[in-house]
Amino acid sequence: MAETTTTTLLPGEEVGSDHVPRSKKGTLTLGPGLRHTPPSTITATTAGTLHVDYKKAALWLEAPHGRYQPAVGDLVIAQVHHSSTESYACALTSHTPFALLGQLAFEGASRKTRPQLKSGDLVYARVSRASKWEEAEIECFNASTGKSEGMGPLKDGMLFQISPAFARRLMMGADKDGRSKGGVIVLEEVGQKVRFEVAVGRNGKVWIDSGSVRETLAVGKLLVQCDEQGWDEDAQKKMVKKLLKDA
């Protein structure tokens, strides 16, 4: 389990030697936001909080800012922009090159049974290829099993914008004791009282559908506010209680 420290680093600042874990193999894994200058200096390249995993001998920076960059395996919410013979061009984030979604990259899709998506439709998909030099590729099924695994076109509901860092925290899941790793319990708390469907995209988008405008809005607003105001778990519980009381 990763031990979280609350060391905040600014770009160019050095990581103190007391934070650097010692592994048996003598190797060290550096994650995003850190740079190694031989022989043994580690400096931050961006502002963020330092996280250390002593078991894996890994170090990385969590930055709350920055735009989304596709990485293989990420679940994203994409918006169809236009369709071509082979694939749909989908926007993951605005003003960035489109990601390609194969016309047949859906569960049980064949030439005749493929879903017809129009410009502006939303899909929940997984990034299957990402590279610096060419467009990312996404797919709505698991290529090895052919199952959709919850991915596919998103109908109705509403899309809310959150920061990519918050989306990551939302998707971290729970540890063995059932505690949220990312420190976000809003959805679990509301989910005990309100029924809704949710899809979190790593590209900073959340899709929520509860069937009614009021509930969808309430849940969405809760998430957006939690992101913008940085509530801790107690504050989250309090705000959820307040919301349920008002509704």
Binding site: G120, D121, V213, R214, T216, L217, K221
Partner: peptide, 24 residues
């Protein structure tokens, strides 16, 4: 400006017909 998705558009309009705005 990127166009909003069909979901957002439909949701906004149905919310307006119920006399609510997205920010309340």
């Amino acid at each position: 400006e990127p166009d909003p998705s069909t979901n957002e558009r439909a949701f906004l309009l149905s919310a307006l017909s119920e006399k609510t705005r997205l920010d309340g």
